[in-house]
Computed example of a mutant assay.
Amino acid sequence: MFPLGSQPLDHNALRQHVDTALAPLLAATPARVSLSLRDLDGGIVLARHADRLQPSASIIKVPILLALLDAAAAGRYSLEQPLALPASGDRAGGTGILAHLPSVATLSLAELARLMIVLSDNVATNALIELLGFDAVNQWSLRAGLTASRLQRRMMDAAAREAGRDNFTSAGDATAAFCWMLRDGALPAPLRAFALDVLADQRERAHFGAALPAPARLASKAGQLPGLRHDAGILTVDNRSVVLAVLADGFTDWQTAQTLQGGEGAALLGQIARVVALGLKAQALAH
């Protein structure tokens, strides 16, 4: 089970540590960097351009996951119920594995949710979007306080993007989604544990997870497009936890600008997460 820290944060000390360490990193990058750092109750520790609207890439899959679990908590779905997948010729490409497994015709909602987060599977994501509907996900976002987030297209729908129908969010919304999940009464304990479990099992570790000090623990969801690198999640170090989101675009190095993996963008997000983790570790040592 993913550990949530119970020790209180020194907000001022953490803010000063992160501000000081971030200054040279942000000065050295051409990217636009949005950051939101909160405690587990949603209190803002640090915000930098946190309301800036940006294409969400795959971190939009967190609201889809939480909208599904909210609906399951209300009895509209069961995570054990099966859902048929489209024929292989109608499956989205990109990240994930189901596009390459045409013999897999049906999976449970729990299995689809796990694949959507752990492997960022686009076939699983589109199946859940089809089940829930765009309106239901967007209405959940509004109820949860995600004022900038909007799901407007399925994964890998290039025609929709060209027509201006993209998926959007902000760093502030990304942390708000996680804080909603942790709020007392938002989800029954088993569904919250399921969400934390799949987020902690995300296999994309080239962003926040790349340079964390031991014994840091991370439950997050990354997203990447050419020129864009995002990550958002919960970071726990020595019984202290924070919710962190970094959304960054405008990178000019070839690997970040032209590909979906690595580059200076992923490295920057790893450095920022390490800065925050070391700030949490310093608080533990001070007490």
Rank of each mutant, 00 (worst) to 15 (best):
A277V: 07
A273Q: 01
S241Y: 10
G227H: 14
W254E: 15
R205M: 08
G262V: 04
A277W: 08
A273V: 01
Q261S: 12
A206V: 12
R229E: 04
E204N: 15
L225W: 09
L278C: 13
P215I: 11
D197P: 01
S220K: 10
I234R: 03
E264I: 02
D201G: 01
D238T: 03
Q202T: 15
R274H: 15
L244Y: 08
G209C: 02
A219D: 02
R217A: 00
R240D: 15
L280A: 13
G270K: 08
A211Q: 11
G250K: 06
G263L: 01
A266D: 08
A257V: 04
A211M: 10
L260W: 14
Q271P: 03
G265N: 15
A214K: 05
Q255E: 15
S241Q: 10
L218R: 03
F208N: 07
A282G: 06
V198P: 05
G209Q: 02
P215F: 09
Q202G: 04
A200W: 12
I272H: 12
D197G: 10
D231I: 05
L280V: 13
L225G: 04
L244N: 10
S241K: 10
T259C: 02
D197H: 11
G227Y: 14
R203N: 12
H230F: 02
A245I: 14
S241T: 13
Q271Y: 01
A245K: 13
A222G: 06
G262R: 09
E204S: 10
A277K: 06
N239H: 12
L225N: 11
